[in-house]
Design a protein around this nucleic acid. Structure first.
Length: 427
RNA sequence: GUGGACGUAGUUCAGUUGGUAGAGCCCUGGAUUGUGAUUCCAGUUGUCGUGGGUUCGAGUCCCAUCGUCCACCCCA
């Protein structure tokens, strides 16, 4: 047992039992992205460490203790990407895609964070994200949220997720507020619990979210963000809310909603669920107008979000199973050497003429009984039979495996028509 | 990084105050020699996570280690 090589902790295989959920999500997103005019971008999994330090923030948990960082052979410090936005922005700047033009982009793929694994949290996990560049107004924020809402609708998850919204103000307003908070908490250092002490250095806004009663009391005395929120941001936020109301998307304003990554400003949002234990956030994002300049670009407004595919898959697998996709339409059973030879030809002809057909051919011989057993187990709707009798008459037998119906021997032309109906779900 | 629970056949699990292992599912074969899913019969499956220790003897007790799960933290 111990001699078997195991997968790395927190890095999971996606087995056939689960993969159809992944495909369903990825297909839905790809279609929706196109429907809203977003193009896919694919960037490397590894980037220079510096990129993440500069974009995510030096003192965030992610950068301080969760990155998979190593030295390349030439001494460069490289890092497995812990999130997708940094690489996307880097690529966009490098290729000049946002020079005097707007872009709507999306990406998907694995991300890596060295955290303790638990439900909905893994060391290699998959995100799908979308980013829009050079749109300054709230309309694009609304568009991204509407797109996600439509995705939940298509996946049947609408009832399980709720939308939380907040505004962090402009970078300047946020910075000013942050400073005021730090100053306030520094004056009350002795009253801070251990968590808050730590947050004071890393993410002071998070202290406001503390569950410790003593901290809650202290927080009541802390400076209020509303005193620092700039007029433009307030306006932006109000317009966003109006648009969402107009299209009937329910939301909840959560003043304590603070995203963990340093680069956010103005709009932030999260889709949360209570069906996943401690990992409630299924999709989250916001505006990061300042990031492109931080990374050496010219000033470029930007918004985006990312969703965790594993968490969506968890939600999907809690639902009653719909029809399992990818089950074969037909399973070809062959008896005898001649039939085996002919079966290969028949199967290829059918696939040639019916590209939609999912046909499994039996391989490996065995008794007819065992072949039928496997045909049944495959989930196929019908079995096709090729044996001595069929070969002699130049026909193929078709036996329904689900519901009622008699076995019949058919010419290839009739068989083709029947299988076509099967593909179209009209059998 | 911190805390708790748990690691027994492919899988889900049982294994009583310590006496070298079982069940369901799955799988394979059979019930008049070309027919599945139901029924019946038969059969295979394991260095009991790993390494030490206590003991005449450990799946069962102790220690260590690795791993899984859950929560804290953090986040998608």
């Amino acid at each position: 047992m111990s001699q078997k090589i195991q997968a790395i902790r927190g890095m999971n295989d996606i087995l056939p039992e689960q993969s159809h959920h992944w495909q369903r999500i990825e297909e839905a997103v790809a279609t929706l992205a196109a429907a809203y005019g977003y193009c896919e971008i694919r960037t490397p999994i590894v980037e220079k460490t510096e990129l993440f330090k500069r974009s995510i923030g030096e003192v965030t948990d992610i950068v301080e203790k969760e990155m998979y960082t190593f030295n390349d052979r030439n001494g460069d410090s490289l890092t497995l990407r812990p999130e997708g936005t940094a690489g996307c922005v880097r690529a966009v700047l490098e290729a000049g895609l946002v020079h005097n033009q707007s872009q709507r982009l999306w990406y998907r793929g694995p991300m890596f964070r060295h955290e303790r694994p638990q439900q909905g949290r893994y060391r290699q996990f998959y995100q799908i994200g979308m980013e829009a560049f050079n749109f300054a107004g709230p309309d694009i924020d609304a568009e991204l949220i509407m797109l996600t809402a439509r995705l939940w609708q298509q996946l049947g998850l609408t009832d399980q997720v709720t939308l939380q919204l907040n505004s962090l103000g402009s970078s300047a307003a946020r910075a000013a507020y942050r400073e005021a908070l730090v100053a306030f908490y520094n004056q009350h250092q002795s009253h801070l619990d251990a968590d808050s002490q730590r947050r004071l250095g890393s993410n002071p806004l998070r202290i406001l979210d503390s569950k410790n009663p003593d901290m809650v009391a202290l927080n009541r005395l802390a400076p209020a963000f509303s005193d620092y929120l700039d007029v433009a941001s307030r306006d932006h936020f109000q317009q966003l809310c109006e648009m969402l109301e107009r299209v009937g998307i329910a939301y909840e304003v959560n003043p304590l909603l603070v995203r963990g990554l340093d680069y956010y400003s103005k709009t932030v949002f999260e889709w949360v669920t209570n069906a996943l234990g401690a990992q409630g956030t299924v999709c989250a994002g916001g505006r990061y107008d300042g990031l492109l300049t931080q990374l050496g670009g010219r000033e470029t407004p930007a918004v985006g979000f990312a969703m965790g595919i594993e968490r969506l898959v968890l939600l999907l697998s809690q639902q009653p199973e719909v029809v399992a996709a990818n089950t074969p339409h037909a399973y070809l059973v062959v008896m005898g050497d001649a039939a085996q030879q002919q079966g290969v030809v028949l199967a290829e002809q059918l696939r040639q003429q019916l590209p939609q057909l999912r046909l499994v051919t039996h391989c490996g011989g065995g008794s007819l009984k065992s072949q039928f057993k496997q045909a049944d187990r495959s989930g196929a709707a019908v079995a096709l039979i090729l044996a001595a009798e069929e070969l002699a008459s130049g026909q193929v037998s078709l036996k329904p495996l689900r519901g009622t119906g008699e076995q019949v021997m058919l010419t290839e032309a009739v068989l083709l028509a029947k299988l076509q109906n099967l593909c179209e779900g009209e059998y």
